[in-house]
Amino acid sequence: MKAYLILDLTIHHLEKFLHYAEVIPAYIAKHQGKYIVKGVEPTVMEGDWQPSRVVVLEFPSKEHAQSFLSDPEAQPLFALRHSSTTSHVILVEGCEPAV
Score class of each variant (00 low, 15 high):
Met1Phe: 02
Ala3Ile: 14
Ala3Val: 15
Tyr4Phe: 15
Leu5Pro: 13
Ile6His: 14
Ile6Lys: 13
Leu7Asp: 08
Asp8Leu: 03
Leu9Arg: 08
Ile11Ala: 10
His13Ala: 14
Phe17Lys: 03
Phe17His: 11
Leu18Lys: 09
His19Tyr: 05
His19Trp: 00
Val23Thr: 09
Ile24Asp: 01
Ile24Leu: 01
Pro25Ala: 10
Ala26Ile: 06
Tyr27Pro: 04
Ile28Trp: 00
Ile28Lys: 00
Ile28Gly: 01
Ala29Val: 15
Lys30Leu: 11
Gly33Asp: 08
Tyr35Ala: 08
Ile36Lys: 06
Ile36Tyr: 04
Ile36Glu: 11
Val37Ser: 02
Val37Cys: 02
Gly39Thr: 02
Val40Met: 06
Thr43Ile: 09
Thr43Asn: 04
Val44Met: 02
Gly47Arg: 07
Gly47Met: 12
Asp48Pro: 08
Asp48Ile: 13
Trp49His: 05
Trp49Leu: 03
Pro51Asp: 04
Pro51Gln: 01
Arg53Met: 06
Arg53Lys: 13
Arg53Asn: 12
Val56Asn: 09
Leu57Lys: 01
Leu57Val: 03
Phe59Tyr: 12
Phe59Trp: 06
Phe59Gly: 09
Phe59Asn: 09
Pro60Asp: 04
Ser61Gly: 06
Ser61Lys: 01
Lys62Pro: 07
Lys62Asp: 08
Glu63Arg: 02
Ser67Met: 04
Ser67Gln: 06
Ser67Ile: 04
Phe68Ala: 10
Leu69Trp: 05
Asp71Asn: 07
Asp71His: 08
Pro72Tyr: 04
Ala74Asn: 15
Pro76Tyr: 04
Phe78Glu: 04
Phe78Cys: 03
Ala79Thr: 11
Leu80Arg: 12
Arg81Met: 09
His82Gln: 11
His82Gly: 11
Ser84Asp: 07
Thr86Trp: 02
Thr86Gln: 14
Ser87Trp: 00
Ser87Leu: 00
His88Gln: 15
His88Pro: 05
Val89His: 10
Glu93Ile: 05
Glu93Gly: 09
Cys95Phe: 13
Cys95Arg: 12
Pro97Gly: 13
Ala98Ser: 15
Val99Gly: 15
